[in-house]
Design a protein around this nucleic acid. Sequence first.
RNA 1: GCUCCGGUAGUGUAGUCCGGUCAAUCAUUCCGGCCUUUCGAGCCGAAGACUCGGGUUCAAAUCCCGGCCGGAGCACCA
Length: 536
Amino acid sequence: MGEYPQLRADPNAVSEALVTIVSEIANGNPDTWEARLSEIAPELIEALSVKKEPDKGLKPLEGAETGKVVMRFAPNPNGPATLGSSRGMVVNSEYVKIYQGKFILRFDDTDPDIKRPMLEAYTWYLDDFKWLGVVPDQVVYASDHFPMYYDYAKKLIEMGKAYVCFCTGGDFKQFKDAKQACPHRDTSPEENLMHWEKMLAGEYEDQQAVLRIKTDIEHKDPALRDWGAFRIRKMSHPRPEIGNKYIVWPLLDFAGAIEDHELGMTHIIRGKDLIDSEKRQGYIYNYFGWTYPKTTHWGRVKIHEFGKFSTSTLRKSIESGEYSGWDDPRLPTIRAIRRRGIRAEALKKFMIEMGVGMTDVSISMESLYAENRKIVDPIANRYFFVWDPVELEIAGMEPSVAKLPLHPTDHARGVREITVGNKVLVCKDDVEKLEVGSILRLKDFCNIEITSLSPLQANHSEVSLEALKKAKAKILHWAPVDGIPVKVRGPEGDIEGIGEHGIAAELDKIVQFERFGFCRIDAVSEENVVAYFAHK
RNA sequence: GCUCCGGUAGUGUAGUCCGGUCAAUCAUUCCGGCCUUUCGAGCCGAAGACUCGGGUUCAAAUCCCGGCCGGAGCACCA
């Protein structure tokens, strides 16, 4: 009826007719349905075989024209990119790709104090983008643009739309909450200009004055009343190019507003904590007669596996040595998951499928791991890694070379060879479930029967495959006694054991340690191998 | 306190703008089975949701009002 409005005239008749028709159809069978359909609506036959596909990927951007979209990702580099930030990196850049627009990476680095930028983090962001396969069309440093900000500030003062306020934070809040103008609000533009020059010249104390944007002091939403645009902080900036050049710092809403206009931004997607920014910045846009970009906001992302964490507390934990660095496998940073062997494609897909919604989401790493597994499973070579190794002696075993497939289905990849004497290593976990008389299979090697638990000994067994299956014999992985020590660093901590020598040839590759999980080989030396655990 | 926003299976999402094709999509997780010389992968199957209450309507996940729950902003942080 949505499609044929004329039917709405008599909905009851339509529904009665439907009942009759449906019961008629129910008496038929699929073949007659299809025959009848080709009579009355042959064009629909094809639709029978088409599965209903949901909309995948990102929804169209409102008002977006191919070739004209300009978007940005604007982090403060006060720490490395996290899984949370990657949403902005992926979604913004992906939209730009769809519309063949321009993507800008802008460092919003104008707070030298509370969220002081970290010099290394600038590079890390660039590096993480490279990993994602995204090349920003332009990289912008807000801290390069102080003169421009000052310029616009001056204009606003001259227009009577901004004033220098000497209230303390608390005093101003009282005025604001009471919808009252503070004593400085009605100062003349000339006088304000003078105060502003003095601010810039360093004639006022740290935090003695702030430049405010005049909005509507009686606005029903207290968040929008006369907001601060510049403050005085007599501090240096971490970038050597900036250093001690400035003491009057623009705040986010001001710097962001100017930047977005100057850079010709057409669309902005960001967290919903910035939802009021648009309204605040809207005043500036109105004063200058600019058009605000189209905005979209998303909710907070929480990850089950990683509790709450803040960049500042994390930094302390790293400095105290609790974590090995910003890429410690226990951390939700991009650097960490990269090191663990999560593929950029998996992260992208994961973020894109999460879409852009205002609801707060609470996600599990499992979904990301599932995406990654699909990518990595076909390419990862298999190896044995025995944790908590225990020696197992096999009586009467002649030294031999075991040949094992590098991949269970892709046989073209060839085999790995392990030289074995009459002893192998097996996991303590497995040993604990054994008893004398247990028959089991050493994977891709031989069948054995346990003859003693302490010391652990076994006889070579000639049971057939069928008998083995019938007995539901365990299949154990194993390692040569002279194997290479392997240390696996993972979200749950470190695990050490012995692996086969072939692992040493897989530096920087992702492999699967059978019955253990996927790992990225992070370091190889004469004495040992360090692997980072990705997921099961 | 003031202002704004949101609520679809365990989790994430599609559908909500513009009511009917929704007996509600897809993915993940969990469970069962098949296959397998990995406890992996794959294949098959099953389970699982419209926050609640009113209203409008022939018809409500969809529109309206109220409640409940959750989040955000009210910084000289971003």
